[in-house]
Amino acid sequence: MATTKLDIVTAERVVFSDDVDEVIAPGAEGQLGLLPHHAPLMTMLLPGELLVKKGGEEFYLAISGGFLEVRPDRIIVLADAAERVEEIDIARAEEAKRRAEELLSERAPGLDMARAEAALRRSLIRLRVAERRRRKPRIQST
């Protein structure tokens, strides 16, 4: 089976780099399933979960927006932030979610609402991805 090289990078580090069979990403125009030999594509990513299939294995990553580029020989994800599921600290994500919700409910003056909302969204995605991992991983229908 053909594979394609996948690189997931953020401004701070390389999160993932390997040959994979399939990538399912939260594209701006809907979920994207990418197989090897996909046509060159440049798309924005929405915050969400990214699924990587390799051999019989599946990896989930939490992505908070960014870009995805398909080149003839490789797929590159430029993520604003990305975490592999095993790196997600559930307790911290819960805490962040609680804090963001608190901030939003208080509506304190001088608060950057957009930022608080973004923080909330990020923590929700982390939790969702982590949740999936805790259950038995299974093939997700998209």
């Binding site: 701006a28 060159p40 594509l41 924005m44 003839p72």
Partner: peptide, 13 residues
């Protein structure tokens, strides 16, 4: 130069 499909469009990207 690679001919990309841009989603949602070049200006948005």
């Amino acid at each position: 130069n690679v001919d990309y499909i841009y989603e949602p469009g070049p200006a948005a990207v």
